[in-house]
């Protein structure tokens, strides 16, 4: 089987964060983890081409996935393999989008990443097999990927036994007992000593790896981002007031302050009177601009990134976060101040 393999700039050996902005390119044969994968696959399957793109470039540009699928087709791919992306958010998002785009175009595809990778939901119905949390688990992960490829080649579907990530879905249903009655049942069970029963698991905490501290603030570029739905008055781009499906960018170059009457919050989740009287209460542009002038920070990034957090799905919010990070890194931003309502 002819396989086209996708890796990011780092695993292709082209460089780290400094090279994350490079565009898509095709390299002959195997590169980076593809070498070990190729060994594990044996002679029956061949990695003919390795596609590479910088994480920031690919994560902040949704058209890249289709472009890469086109390149895979040109290389005569019978299967597109993406990753393993482990826990890396931008890389995972790109791998997920790539396999989704490939399957939509009729090209079989397989991605690999950690089940908690924030990009994973973008894979849609395309198969994803589990990777370890970091590249320290490269070998066992590639063994899983190789076995999955061999199985796909026989025409079989992948299952959980093959390492396929099958995330449990919460399926809504109507039941005979209304929620208040179920709450009474549940409280009685707990009072009787059952400490486990619950309709939704409790106690889960997300883990985010903190970024390294900024070295020299006085030369750093700082960005302002918000989930407080602050948009130009009249909401020209029709940002949702709840349940965001997207985020927007607005130029703030040359602006010393966010003027009342020119900006408004369209968030449906809180009383917006204070925000609309002084939009700097949602995004502290006036202060940050002064700190820029005083030399406390190097430069304020020239765009404000905005979405609405009200009722927004966690999966969407995670995706916005990954896209914002890619966007800001690409623009050379070292720190972002996120104001949240």
């Amino acid at each position: 089987m002819r396989i086209v393999h996708y890796v990011n700039q780092f695993y292709a050996g082209l460089g780290g964060e400094a090279e994350a902005g490079i565009g898509p390119r095709a390299l002959e044969g195997t590169v980076g983890p593809g070498r070990l994968l190729s060994q594990l696959l044996g002679d029956e399957h061949e990695i003919v081409v390795t596609l590479v793109c910088g994480d920031d470039y690919a994560a902040s540009n949704t058209a890249v996935a289709e472009e890469l699928v086109g390149m895979a087709r040109e290389a005569g791919a019978e299967l597109l393999v993406a990753g393993p992306a482990f826990g890396s958010g931008r890389y995972g998002l790109v791998c997920a989008r790539l396999v989704a785009a490939a399957e939509a175009a009729g090209l079989p595809a397989l991605a690999s990443m950690h089940p908690d990778n924030p990009g994973i939901s973008d894979a849609g119905g395309a198969p994803v097999v589990a990777a370890g949390a970091s590249s320290r688990q490269m070998r066992p992960t590639l063994q899983t990927v190789a076995a999955a490829i061999a199985k796909l080649a026989t025409g079989a579907n992948l299952t959980v036994a093959d390492g396929r990530v099958a995330r449990a879905a919460r399926v809504g249903q109507l039941v005979d007992q209304r929620a208040a009655a179920r709450a009474v049942e549940l409280v009685l069970r707990r009072l009787a000593g059952d400490r486990e029963s619950t309709e939704v698991p409790v106690g889960g905490f997300d883990v985010v790896t903190p970024s390294a501290p900024v070295d020299k603030l006085a030369s750093a570029t700082v960005a302002l981002v918000t989930e407080g739905a602050l948009v130009p008055a009249g909401n020209p781009d029709r940002l949702e007031s709840a349940r965001a499906t997207r985020w927007l960018r607005y130029p703030i170059e040359g602006m010393d302050s966010l003027a009342s009457g020119k900006w408004e919050s369209v968030d449906g989740g809180f009383a917006t009177t204070a925000a609309n009287a002084d939009p700097n209460r949602i995004v502290p542009l006036d202060t940050v601009r002064r700190l820029e002038r005083d030399g406390v920070i190097g430069r304020l990034h020239n765009e404000l990134l905005v979405t609405v957090g009200n009722g927004t799905q966690v999966a969407s919010a995670r995706r916005f976060g990954v896209e914002w990070a890619a966007e800001l890194r690409k623009a050379g931003v070292q720190a972002a101040i996120l104001t949240a309502t």
């Binding site: 579907n157 249903q173 179920r182």
Partner: peptide, 21 residues
């Protein structure tokens, strides 16, 4: 306030991936 009849249960997602070819 619990006046409705909806709830959610966890179900293993359907693995509806396509077969090769």
């Amino acid at each position: 306030l619990g006046a409705g009849w909806l709830t959610c249960r966890s179900e293993q997602q359907q693995l509806a991936g396509q077969k090769l070819g």
